[in-house]
């Protein structure tokens, strides 16, 4: 489902070129559970952004769902992100002036769905993450764990095929972090392709497939 072939991603920093990704080849099957680990600056986020079509490879080819998405236009990338990809970030990234419900609704609003069609899906998404009683709370009235659950509800309300989580537990205490991982794993169990970047070896160990990165390259790729 995700197929990266010889991907390079270079950044120009001053007159130096940083190879954030250096010849990465990676295939992920639909429904897989992949953890990505590695030292800071090894290219994990860059890889995730590329898979999520927030970024573009300098070289190499990327196929998503048997479709070449290497050279999509800006608008096409945006539409694909909206329909097929869910993002969960370390910093939650909730819009502070909108309620939990409205935050979850955002991707559907951006897609131009009429309110009648949004309501049920938003409610179901909140329900699935046990947030129904928090629907009308603003982010600053929620705990860290709840905020990340709202973010997950938002990432999954469009029923994407792929869920990309970049250090989703990085800003959470251990218990909330554990809850969030449980939620992500249960989503994976229901079929979503899950790729998690994490620093926590214990969490990383839980994935079926573990990718270890170093200096923009895949150092090891183990399947349990």
């Amino acid at each position: 489902m995700i197929d990266l072939q010889h991907i390079h991603r270079d950044f120009q920093v001053g007159d130096q070129i940083v190879h954030a990704l250096d010849d990465v080849t990676l295939s992920v099957k639909a429904g897989d559970y992949v953890s990505t680990m590695g030292p800071s600056g090894s290219g994990k986020s860059t890889l995730l952004n590329l898979i999520g079509l927030l970024d573009r490879a300098t070289r190499g080819r990327y196929r998503l769902n048997d479709e070449d998405v290497t050279t999509l236009s800006d608008a096409e990338q945006a539409e694909t992100r909206n329909r097929r990809i869910g993002f969960v970030f370390q910093a939650f990234h909730l819009v502070p002036r909108l309620t939990a419900r409205e935050n979850v609704e955002l991707p559907l609003i951006l897609a131009g769905l009429p309110p009648e069609q949004r309501q049920g899906r938003v409610a179901a998404s909140l329900e699935a993450l046990q947030l129904s009683d928090r629907a009308h709370h603003k982010p600053d009235q929620l705990s860290g764990g709840q905020r990340q659950r709202v973010a997950i509800a938002r990432a999954t309300v469009t029923e994407p095929a792929v869920l990309l989580a970049d250090e989703p537990t990085g800003n959470l205490d251990q218990k909330s972090g554990r809850d969030v991982i449980d939620v992500l794993e249960s989503l994976n169990a229901r079929g979503i392709t899950l790729i998690v970047v994490t620093h926590d070896p214990e969490l990383g160990e839980r994935a079926r497939r573990r990718v270890l990165m170093r200096d923009g390259r895949i150092e090891s790729d183990m399947v349990r």
Binding site: L54, A78, E79, R81, H93, L106, L110
Partner: peptide
């Protein structure tokens, strides 16, 4: 800025 990044990630086009 962060919010702009977010809605772009959620599928907003530049025009939006």
């Amino acid at each position: 800025v962060g919010e702009i990044g977010l809605i772009r990630a959620l599928g907003a086009r530049r025009g939006q």
